[in-house]
Amino acid sequence: MSSEIVWMILGMGAVTYIPRMLPFVLFKGKELPPFLQGVLKNVPSATLGALIFPGVLFIQEDIWFGILGAAAAFLVAYLGANVIVVVLGAIAVLSVYSFIM
């Protein structure tokens, strides 16, 4: 192992770990003002929106690939399926799509 790469990895690990860990150590939870607590409660749903778009459109060069996959996942999820079924369903639909194309 080259020591330069190892130092790089350790540095990357440190700057990744610190933002993950600090809030858990700094805040006890439930002590922030109510408005901020409300905002933090909104964060998960908002994050999911931002994680899905626009990323899902660019998973392959063919933009329809992502649109079809997202639509399939949405439909399966809307019907009330478990998350794993949603994941496998979207993969199955896209396998068929790339087989046909």
Binding site: L51, I52, G55, G66, A73, F74, A77, G80
Partner: peptide
């Protein structure tokens, strides 16, 4: 992405 959608939709 499908997992994110599966978590969000319910």
């Amino acid at each position: 992405y499908a997992m994110f959608i599966g978590l969000l939709v319910p």
